[in-house]
Design a protein around this nucleic acid. Structure first.
Length: 198
DNA sequence: TCATTAAAGTTAT
DNA sequence: ATAACTTTAATGA
């Protein structure tokens, strides 16, 4: 779900380097660019009044982000922050829309990608609301695992810290840790040198 | 059932 | 070294 890098380049896109924890854009900012991850990982998040983080989404290789806000001229409802060192390709808003005009097939790509995002968001929201901690964690892990080919038990290494898992489910870290431990005892997950296998 | 606080051990920068 | 993450335990809503 991405636009070819060379196509973006020819339309005038530029590469940006970010270090872990650097902001790419922040909440309430005005969208000016189409963004796509080349390497590394990016999270979309919010902080509540107490400073507690809620992660909306984690993006990786070839994922685009911030696109929906570009189309509806509203300010960003989230921050975009680099999780690791990463390279982001970004294209000026006007150039992005010109590119879509020039290559209508891209419209389908973008449309499909946005729809997919929306679908997953709805599914995730339903799964993490009104459920026990263990169920929330299991559903989030399952959703991530669904993206991968190998569905056999314990084949999927959860690519998140317990902190991030907590921020993604709205649980506190301690509860997350205790629940994961319990799930290990119940053979739902396996833990190998601190990595969670599902 | 889960959040919060505190305290201590471990890993990453 | 220092910050970030992980873990355990006690306490309370």
């Amino acid at each position: 779900m991405s636009i070819k890098e060379n196509l973006l380049q020819s339309a005038g896109a530029t590469l940006e380097n970010y270090n872990a924890s650097e902001y790419i854009f922040s909440e309430r900012g005005i969208p000016h660019f189409y963004y796509q991850v080349l390497t590394g990982e990016v999270k979309l998040n919010n902080y509540d009044e107490d400073g507690k983080e809620f992660i909306q989404n984690i993006l990786g290789n070839d994922d685009s982000f911030g696109t929906s806000m570009l189309c509806i001229h509203k300010t960003y409802p989230v921050n975009a922050i680099a999780i690791s060192k990463c390279v982001i390709i970004k294209l000026q808003k006007d150039s992005f829309f010109r590119l879509l005009e020039e290559f209508p097939s891209l419209y389908n790509e973008v449309f499909k990608s946005l729809s997919e995002r929306l679908y997953k968001k709805v599914v995730l929201m339903r799964k993490i609301s009104c459920r026990s901690a263990a169920e929330r964690l299991k559903e989030v892990m399952q959703l991530m695992k669904d993206e991968h080919i190998d569905q056999s038990p314990f084949s999927f290494v959860i690519p998140l810290t317990r902190q991030q898992l907590a921020s993604l489910t709205g649980l506190c870290v301690e509860t997350t840790i205790r629940t994961i431990k319990k799930m290990e005892r119940e053979k739902i997950v396996r833990i190998e040198n601190r990595k969670i296998l599902y």
